[in-house]
Amino acid sequence: PSDLSQVWPEANQHFSKEIDDEANSYFQRIYNHPPHPTMSVDEVLEMLQRFKDSTIKREREVFNCMLRNLFEEYRFFPQYPDKELHITACLFGGIIEKGLVTYMALGLALRYVLEALRKPFGSKMYYFGIAALDRFKNRESDYNKAKKGVDLADQISYYSFSNIKMYIEYGQQSRDPPVKMQG
């Protein structure tokens, strides 16, 4: 199912304005430029990781609110300027990389990336897919073990991003890529 509420019950709840506002403020910091307060994608990911299993209900709500809003935003990504889209791709890929979503929601996240990679080479969403994939490529082999039949590598043009393609092909065989490729 493509409907988020069907795959992610926690995303279904109603969030108070305070939770919405707090979630908004963190996203704001990702896209801000100094002298406004900023946070890096990695800092936000670390915070989300803490909030996910927090004993404080408000923090778990902020986590669910942020993730839900990000997923719901997917359909608007083609309207983003390049810089903001790249930041968003790093955040989206980082969420997959860090295992912040699991099961059906993870399946949906991966499908969004796959869908982006099916867009024409050079299109905005294609680059979104590549940038997101670049973040979680180190985890690819885990997913390919569980997710037979979806061939990410086939979606990537032969004439571009050959390193990422090779990386995934090693992952499909549950092998580590050569050390020289790590960079």
Binding site: A11, H14, N69, E72, P81
Partner: peptide
């Protein structure tokens, strides 16, 4: 359930180009 409210920051980003 109704669709979630789009956060203001996202509205701002997608119209800024």
């Amino acid at each position: 359930p109704s669709a979630p409210r789009r956060l203001p920051i996202f509205n701002r980003i997608s119209v800024s180009e």
